[in-house]
Amino acid sequence: MTTDNVIEISGLRKSFGAHEVLKGIDLVVPKGKTVVLLGASGSGKSTLLRCVNFLETPTAGTVAFNGRPVGTPKGAAGERSYSDRELRVLRARIGIVFQQFNLFPHMTALENIMEGQRAVLGRSREEAAARAEDLLARVGLAGRGGAYPSHLSGGQQQRVAICRALAMDPDVMLFDEATSALDPELVGEVLRTMRSLREDGMTMLIVTHELGFAYHIADEVVFLSEGRIYEQGPPEQVMLHPKGERTRQFMLGHSEFRLPHLD
């Protein structure tokens, strides 16, 4: 069974204790496409993103990667069990960029980008370093490989984090509010990097608060509300002509994303 969907999520549920954050999500991320998750805080969009590479373990439902469901069924309620090894292999092929960068502070930028290549892909030191240099140059950080994270600006750190994920040659990139922790003047450089990834044909699943950016980069926008998909479709449709009242309110509430005919 082959498919052109890198990620296929079906019936995904996630609870933290008694609180159910995701209440049955079905979503596909087709190869080469960019899907943007929007929603108010607490709508579950970050949790959904983190379920894709199993930083959070779903309570029920399946996540299929390149057509193959992850984990094995266990019990009747749609639970699945996941082996450490399986998840490691999976994660190596899914890149993620965090809000707080999470660079390794005791390693230089170059070492940060080399670590996964060496530990997981088994690349040689030279090979890993060459790839890291190459990626740094691509995001406009040529020559900064020797710097420690604490000596880089937030925007630079986030670009290094993007390189760290890209170095694994992932099939899909996840962005978890990658610009939310940045000073406003540093947001642009990270967004530019993300846009260039799209131009290169990278498959991406993005959680962001930058609506203007979302509008321009998304092939599909998914609006989440209270743990469910409330509305989804092309950005023009969901963001400019929202059908649902909650979507409309959300778009209106973000003044920096001006949609003249909604005013």
Partner: peptide, 30 residues
């Protein structure tokens, strides 16, 4: 050591032992 360090290392597919000895302990020692 912040939880994000585990997450970042896990997200790269690193083994538990490798995360422990390459990422967590070197930072903890300080």
């Amino acid at each position: 050591v912040p939880k994000g360090q585990w997450e970042a290392a896990n997200a790269l597919g690193m083994s538990r032992a490798r995360v422990m000895f390459r990422i967590v302990l070197p930072q903890a020692v300080r």
